[in-house]
Design a protein around this nucleic acid. Structure first.
Lengths: 341, 341
DNA sequence: GAATCGAGTGTAAGCGCTTACACTTGCGGA
DNA sequence: TCCGCAAGTGTAAGCGCTTACACTCGATTC
């Protein structure tokens, strides 16, 4: 009943060579004579042999596996970048293990240990804000790590990302220059989320730079879900006077806002403007199309993979890559006549 | 320089017990005296010991890991169900490993082997249509597998899903009963995708049942992306006379269609109706809200986890769970006066 | 012709864990 | 008092692979 799964020993016996030779055929073909190689590979085929990954990782002390921990799989924010990350890793001969932390620092910490225990050769984490213990653990075990989706201010670790605060600041600059003074903000939860915090800080910074009081901002923090964005928007619209623009922490929230606006009978951008962040595929397909910050997700994933593997293979020094983002003007943001706040 | 990572032996030595006892403290606490347990756990803490996963899986011949292969992470279709699957597995003491096959059967086959080689105790696959060799491989190694997002007609494997064809047939029935005769279809690529094929077949079936010729359908197959949906929609609209309704293989395609309609100056549902499939979060937030088929994704994930773990732990017989889906009427589909095709 | 060499192969020692089995206690019952 | 037994612990044999090192042998070199 119990099926006998072929092992490397079985192959060796059947092909009449040593286990070392079989192992070489699988990993370092050039060290084996063509004749032997051929015979061994045929045997592998014949027996339907698949190397046991755990045994391999254990013996070689290398797993050719990279772990990634993202806050959520439930929306598209990370999907695209992660996909590119994966594809690039694959080209470089590595595999990807993904887990999601549901935006919970504690879960993330658990998963870091889990992935390391699984023998990950390196890790991709999102953002830089986390318990120092995690970094210590990683450093203690010498696990190369790259932080993405943000730029690490202290450069203690390699990162590939962009300046969330700066990007949002320039979007806010644009908004203000277009005449808006009463600005509503729907931010992602900033607690433990440096990206969300950075974006929010960018708006405040812009306010101050233009001589306004950042406290005048009407800010709601909520989760990154369409539904939540809608609720927050409705809340903001209860203020008197209404904001003339609602800046959202990402495109998902903005989508919720736009949807709710229609429900409330508000016209975007004539009654109120809306902005997003990320430029996910959806952003250009909602109505009206979303003015947002374009983030080069695929490039970020690709570069992150290279940075990480470089660290692993060449032990190159830790580097930071700051990617350029750009503002994409679409119809959801409109110039208005300046009016006092 | 090379940091010395603590092993179970280190803990044993430090706590002055045997490795067996440490192992028991970690896995079968009840077999150890409270005093010893306490001492060992303190030592574990002190050394910062984390068990090596590969070694454990190897020695125990169990990994408490489940593998899942989904066609894509790039859109929301699978995200929600997978999330629920993961959460449920976690409750049951298992971990999840995810890979994506990019809708390529060959990649999927590779990843099945990969996950099995990694020691997965069980697998979640999407749909039932795949090379028999994969099933043979799985059966040969006795790897419990559950198929989701579809119902397996031959019941050779456990499945948790729903009747794609039946669901789409009833949606088509509704569409026809609402007066539509000229039906355009934007289908996902049916090749190797039983869900897409089933949905398409459902529409055809409905046509025939109503006495129409299924060949009259104007069908475009394309990839599940917003952009592709838009292109297909534009293509369909070139026909004379235009279809009165466009039925889409899923909500993503439908979103693309709706977006493109606006671009073309067409009003939905007055100029043309649109339907989707899946009822992802977005479906109720596009404008107009999408008439679609509601699929209980979370429930599917949850049930799939239980079915799979039951198979693994109790060697229960293979079962099939067919979940109920329902049609959600929203504004994108409108009743019209019957007109000859 | 002997010394040298390198290509190809084999031997065997682990990698860090689990677990069957053997062993040591201390206890209650006969 | 002695035995049996259960609870707690230790011993050691693997799990399936990689790889340092040793070995063989035909081809070069001088």
């Amino acid at each position: 009943m119990t099926p006998q799964i072929p092992t490397l020993d079985d192959v060796a016996r059947e092909a009449d060579v040593s286990t070392a030779t079989v192992s070489r055929c699988l990993n370092e073909k050039q060290k084996v004579s063509p004749k032997t190689l051929d015979r061994v590979m045929k045997t592998v085929e014949k027996l339907g042999y698949t190397p046991n990954f755990n045994a391999r990782a254990m013996a070689a002390k290398r797993s050719f596996t990279i772990g990634a921990i993202i806050p959520t799989m439930e929306n598209a924010i990370f999907a695209r970048g992660l996909q590119a990350f994966q594809e690039t890793l694959h080209e470089l001969g590595y595999n990807l293990l993904v887990s999601s932390s549901a935006y919970q620092p504690k879960l993330e910490a658990e998963q870091v240990r889990e992935l390391v225990a699984r023998g990950a050769d390196g890790l991709l984490l999102i953002g830089y804000e986390r318990d120092q213990k995690i970094y210590d653990y990683l450093d203690g075990r010498n696990i190369p790590t790259v932080l993405a989706w943000a730029s690490s201010p202290d450069a203690a670790h390699a990162f590939v990302g962009f300046d969330n605060q700066g990007a949002m600041r320039s979007l806010a600059d644009t908004v203000i220059e277009m005449g808006h003074r009463r600005i509503g903000v729907i931010s992602g939860a900033t607690n433990g989320n440096d990206r969300a915090a950075g974006r929010l800080a960018g708006i405040k910074e812009s306010m101050r730079a233009h001589g306004f009081d950042a406290n005048d901002l009407n800010i709601i923090e909520t989760q990154y879900e369409i539904e939540r964005g809608g609720e927050a928007f409705e809340q903001l619209m209860k203020a008197t006077p209404k904001p003339t623009v609602v800046m959202c922490g990402n495109d998902v929230l903005a989508t919720g806002a736009i949807s709710k606006a229609r429900e409330l009978g508000l016209d975007i951008p004539n009654d109120v403007s809306v902005t997003g962040f990320d430029d996910i595929e959806l952003a250009s397909h909602v109505w009206p199309p979303l003015t947002t910050v374009h983030v080069p997700h695929r490039e970020m994933g690709r570069v992150a993979a290279h940075v990480l593997i470089d660290q692993i293979e060449k032990r190159s020094t830790k580097v930071g890559h700051e990617l350029n983002v750009s503002i994409v003007m679409r119809d959801s943001l409109k110039r208005i006549k300046v009016q006092d706040p």
